[in-house]
């Protein structure tokens, strides 16, 4: 049993911020605990004051606010999966919850923890990227917003300060004819082979692509939108030969970011396969 831990559960966000202002340096925020508890057990948790934010009202709820879609940081993956609001306005995010871990983990794991863990393979990240999401955090010096693509500065390193709490994610709601999230590779074993992708697309009556957003997760140290591929496909019919070409372009873009590492022998065909799989339901065969 970990004997040197402390536990604190503030009842308001203000109280939590106050706590972090003095103890932030020795504190680990805990929400669902599905990452923190694994680290605690492995003896890898350095900051052992546990600050439980899972019940803060300020971090809960999924709602439309004006033109934006707001998802509280303590919203669980199970809640994301069940949300009709997300199914309509952020369908790829809703779908990423379907194959996230197990039912037991989905009941606890939060979106804030998924981003806060700063693992390059967080499943919620590619969907957040295609919705141009911003992360909202609150700390002693007030509130700030950061684009989701700038949260991670590298694998397991991130921009959230020790005295800050993620409160919510603000998404651009987009209803799409087609949206999906797909991943390959196992979680811990062979972490290097993990790869994920979120896509969202509209087509006109002839099948030409009128809107496309694509983001790649896990392959690159920080998440990225695949704008070159999006531009390449825009206005065209996604016929199988064209999708092959787009897949090659995608792999080139990935290599441009990561450099040619040894894992590329696996990753290059894998990412192309993943790309063709995710778009296969919308491919035109005429």
């Amino acid at each position: 049993m970990n004997r040197d831990c402390t536990y604190h559960r503030p009842s308001t966000l203000a109280e939590a911020v106050d706590y972090l202002a003095t103890k932030g340096g020795e504190t680990t925020i805990i929400a669902g605990g599905t990452d923190v508890m694994v680290d605690l057990r492995a003896g890898k948790l350095e900051r052992r004051n546990l600050l439980d934010v899972s019940r803060l009202d300020e971090l809960r709820g999924i709602r439309l606010e004006g033109e934006k879609l707001v998802v509280g940081a303590a919203v669980t993956l199970a809640e994301i999966h069940r949300s009709p609001l997300l199914a309509n306005h952020a369908p790829a995010l809703q779908k990423c919850a379907r194959n996230f871990a197990s039912a037991q983990i989905r009941n606890k794991a939060t979106i804030g923890g998924n981003v806060g863990h700063c693992s390059p393979c967080g499943d919620t990240i590619p969907p957040l990227v295609i919705h141009q999401a911003e992360m909202v955090c609150t700390g002693s010096s007030g509130q700030r917003r950061l684009p989701i693509t700038e949260v991670a500065t590298g694998a397991y390193r991130c921009q959230i300060a020790r005295d800050e709490i993620i409160t919510a994610f603000v998404l651009e709601p987009v209803g799409a004819d087609f949206a999906d999230f797909q991943k390959i590779g196992r979680r811990q074993a062979l972490a290097i082979s993990r790869m994920s992708m979120a896509a969202m697309l509209n087509q006109d009556q002839e099948g030409r692509i009128t809107m496309l957003r694509l983001a790649l997760g896990a392959c690159t140290p920080t998440p990225c939108r695949l704008r070159l591929v999006e531009e390449f496909l825009l206005g065209k019919k996604p016929q199988p030969a064209l999708l092959m070409q787009a897949g090659e372009l995608l792999a080139e873009q990935m290599i441009a970011i990561t450099g040619r590492r040894s894992s590329i022998i696996y990753k290059e065909p894998a990412v192309q396969g993943l790309f063709r799989r995710i778009l296969s339901p919308v491919a035109c065969h005429d």
């Binding site: 669902g32 605990g33 599905t34 508890m37 439980d52 199970a78 039912a103 983990i105 009941n107």
Partner: peptide, 9 residues
């Protein structure tokens, strides 16, 4: 709700 007791504080 079903949860993993090993991951719950």
């Amino acid at each position: 709700k079903a949860v993993n007791a090993c991951l719950l504080l």
